[in-house]
Nucleic acid binder design. Sequence first.
RNA 1: GGCGACGUGGCCGAGUGGUUAGGCAGAGGCCUGCAAAGCCUUGUACAGGGGUUCGAUUCCCCUCGUCGCCUCCA
Length: 452
Amino acid sequence: MLHLHDTATGSSRPLQPREPNKVSMYVCGPTVYGPPHLGHGRFSLVFDVLRRYLRWSGFEVDYVSNITDIDDKIIQRAAEEGRSWEEIAQRCERVWYRAMDAIGVERPTRDPHATDYVEQMVEFIERLVERGAAYVAPDGVYFRPSVVADYGLLARQSIDSLRAGARVGVDEAKESPIDFALWKLAKPGEPSWPSPWGAGRPGWHTECVVRSRDLLGDCFDLHAGGQDLAFPHHENERAQAVADGADFAELWVHNGFVEVGGEKMSKSLGNFTNLLDLLDAHDPRAYRMLCLQSHYRSPIDVDSTSIGNAEAALARLDAVARRVRDHVADLPDPDPETIASFAERMDDDLDTPGAMAIVFKSVTRINSLLDAGSDLVALPLISALLSMMRAVGLVLDVDGSELPDEVVALARERDEARAAKDWTRADALRDELVAAGWVVEDSADGTRVRPG
RNA sequence: GGCGACGUGGCCGAGUGGUUAGGCAGAGGCCUGCAAAGCCUUGUACAGGGGUUCGAUUCCCCUCGUCGCCUCCA
């Protein structure tokens, strides 16, 4: 059974779905006001791997991930560009999904938008006000975390220390610095929706509670997101649900940061890298490989060195995939020992680096057996390798790409030269292909060429 | 100031109270017409100082260092 590190308890806990074979998970999605950066890429990849692994393990996965399409930052961006906020949100959402598609992240089962839930949010906020968990102030409605006994659970801090540490300039309208906005009254020119307190828009933390409870119900299995969302965003979601008398998420999972030179990559530091730029410069699978080779809760440095390493590791997998391509049509059941040790690692808080170690070990064994001509013995291992690749969402390049006629001609010419043992000519032809950016390998079937 | 995480061999990066992580790069060998790919072998690793223990990289304490959260952020 899969165990995950639960932020709420600070310990590893078994994932016990409320329905036997179905996992319900909610992953906090993006606020669409700019291009996705590496941090977005990381959480998307990490939880895509989790989702695929769960499915591989036999679960159906209901994967809900939201789009926040109304927010101060969207309004600001719209003002800067002289466009409507809707236009900004829609454009950024398209860019988001294009990037996700490119890194092989599956679309969510459902992707609720904040603007589709405003009415429900208003009803919810009304209820919180009635229950005394929220109060109306001159500029909006605020939530009172002090009504939640164990507020600070996800931050792993007491409410008093949070209050003491609050550095934010105290807003006069708030009773306490840790109170947060549920409803913001609109200023002139801002988009707004009607409410009992006046036209305005919802605060960020409310949308996720309302949507997740609507789509997944109370006490769903897994709530996930980047580590920086644990507090205050997730804490505040949970506080609202608790104040409403509901059981919220059963398990909280947070992934580590992307760093640049050992420092957190963040918008306020301005050191973020656009995910699309990374994809322009590298194999789109490389980032997934990099994430797999580190633990999801550890910080990772994404730079040309680490991505380059990941690409080299990928090349090793691609090489074996090319070798076994003639065998994939009719494979036996996967080698049970390999699968068992892979699953053992994955079940241990998604230990993907350990799982990849199993993968690479099986690669070495496959290559050894193939070298020895023991293809039949290798088949269950090949089958296991492909199964593990499916579990983590890595697509191996088995090289179906078309070669230009000119290149094919050169390769044939080289085969003739080699047949005639004209090594000088054969080497010259190889040099020519290599200079043009191709990788040349000899094989039993002659010169094999692929893109470098 | 409060709370928390981390410090592993050339680089990245797991893990464990005593037995091989893995990837990349390097060295030697096999294979190859030569290469490439592949296979085999190889490398003074666990921040520093105490303590517990038959034995600690792994547990406890201290020091140093790095980073994060408490503020929009994935």
